[in-house]
Design a binder for these strands. Sequence first.
DNA 1: CGGCCCCGCGTTTTT
DNA 2: CGCGGGGCCG
Length: 810
Amino acid sequence: MEKKKMENLLNELNDSQREAVVYCDGAQLVIAGAGSGKTRVLTYKIAYLLQQYNLAPWNILALTFTNKAAREMKERIARLVGEERARYLLMGTFHSIFARILRSEAAAIGFQSNFTIYDQSDSRSLVKNIIHEKGLDDKEYKPAAVADQISMAKNHLIMPDAFGSCSLFDPRHPQVATIYKMYAMRCRQANAMDFDDLLVQTFLLFSEHEDIRRKYVEKFHYVLVDEYQDTNFAQQRIVYLLTRERQRVCVVGDDAQSIYSFRGADIDNILNFRDAYTNARLFKLEQNYRSTQLIVKAANSLIRKNERQIPKDVYSHNEQGERLQLKPAQSDREEALIVCNDIKRLRRKEDLQWNDFAILYRTNAQSRSFEEQMRKDNIPYRIYGGLSFYQRKEIKDVIAYFRTIVNPDDEEALRRIINYPTRGIGDATVKKIAGAATEHGVSLWAVILQPMLFGLQVAKSTATKIDAFRQLIEGWRERLGTEDAYELGHSIIQESGITKDIYSSHEPDDLSRQENLQEFLAGMQDFVESRREEDRGDETSIADFLQEVALLTDLDSDKDSDQPKVSLMTVHSAKGLEFPVVFIVGLEENIFPSPMCTDSMRALEEERRLLYVAITRAEKHCILTCAENRFRFGRLEFDTPSRFIRDIDPSLLQVDGGNSDRQSFASPRLPWQAQNAHPVATQFKAAPMPRAVSRTKPEPAVDPLSPQFKQLLHTARSGQTNAFTAGRGGNTSSLRRIDTQATHTPPHKDGTGGGSLLREGTIIEHQRFGIGTVVRLEGEGDNEKATVAFRNAGTKQLLLKFARYKIVNS
DNA sequence: CGGCCCCGCGTTTTT
DNA sequence: CGCGGGGCCG
């Protein structure tokens, strides 16, 4: 009967999917093109292993990158083989599965099982403390950069002692090696691991303790890895340690969607999989079930420009569909307007729901303009990512209390709460405690427990305050074993004085902090209840709650997912998702690709893959937008269209000429748009170069794709008095600086003043149109417009808010 | 020690 | 523009 059922299931698959599912004799690499049913293959394969091979669910290990992916896969398997069996599958993120293993094996690697997990901000703050303690200049040793370097080293399994001689080591910053050493030591003293340690320590556990490795090899009969293209070296080695004997390993991924190298992911892992597993068989899934033919073709035409990839031919038999659309906009506001109008139009025309739409951008900061416009238009939306619930100050503070109670050695948590709410233990005292701790090589908490023993010199009144704090923490610690997370958590928030601190004020942002705190408490209650329901009543303590929360991200909380809403997110967080209509916005040089990525071929190819990922999220419509003038860092900048637009086969890209959407937006039309031409063509049309009249020397022409341009961009951004402009590309491009001292200034708060310094007859040098004379002025404040007769570019109307010019002669 | 104010700086993506 | 950190004063 089960066999019969399995046969039916297999019949739902296409040939290549089925082959991938039923091959279970050895290492296996499945290259799954976008939308080719990768998750389907994984779930069916697990069902197959359970039913055909009679593997016990606890003998199957499936590793994913997000909690959400793990949860969804588990649900899908439950539908295939039943709740009961699916429940015992070992399925989760690398980080959460390894954290669980490390807790039970902590002793072997010299940790206690109640270790805390440092998040990125904890790591950075620890690095910062170390830098300061060592008396180094934090301008030269930027904490964030150093922490990233350490993280990168860990992802490559480079231990502190080896760092000085590895390729990541930068001789200009020799102290990083020492900082790394101290960092590792301090983590140990704090009984804490950062995200990367969860991998590094697991690797060390398995490579240095053969008996333990054997135990887990025995346990994991079959190992499956999702999104293998995003694994880093450490993850790849761990998987290898677990599978090298049996070679019962199936990794699934798409090299064309490898977009996490900044996190240490190494595309070589998937490209060279068959070096590690010499007998591995390669399977390819090439039929895309998600998108229309033209979307797939356009995406292919883009990704073909990359050199490093596994050759494959992704195709679709769905309807042909429409070409990609490119809609140029004047400004970021107009861009948002175009997108919102399109959403409303398509929803009516094609009878879609709000949740059928997604707006994808390169950086989180870009969500703002869309948010504003959607508010105005009453379009329901949800922004994913950004700062997660658990990263908010008030929540982090509460969590810091929990962490301290579970693991008082946790230095970062302790520092956070030792004087919050204020209890008279200030910076100076903390420094003394930390000094004593470093001197004796113990944790801060050890010093607090026995100040005399470690020679802590403080005033008597301060000593009393420290001791009061100690008693406070120890009092709660005694209740750890008897009370559940909600009970204890609730009283901690009360007794610590957090409640008093937050509820005493009626400032609007304190109100939202109160709401957040309520929500957090409700979350703990849910946690305790659902654990009880799952028959895990003994895993409801604060420690269990922390374990759950430490590795949770915002994407996991679908509180109000019942309401259909437009999704706004970065391309990175859109991976694995699909939408009937996808807008990819901000397709401009210096945004997408990001300027950080344009130095190396490798990085640029990754950016291209990122755009590939974005396009392949779309089922029916994929609409690209780019804005020419954009507010960034609080100032206006001028962007050229993304070089990636040129990589898309022009016959698969429809460019939107001026239309009704745009007329409602009161902004001047600049030639780039008014000419109604293909922007790819316009991009190379040189703007009229003004004759140099002013005394400032004209800057030499710089190609916007060159490294010098980046340099100039950087100076222009950091300089207070200069704006810059990129001429339209190619060989004749120019980059000039325009002093902004004469630009339009907004009115004062009381409504007076502001405006431009222009009069009729003033001669200005405009950053794009060159030299011209002001003919007429109208409007006020933000709407102030000038009509200017330019020497080489005809008469233009400028919305002064957007214009950059300087006065030559008035 | 605590609170307030000002300055400076930055924004790539995240388990 | 908005946040966070540092410095200064009470």
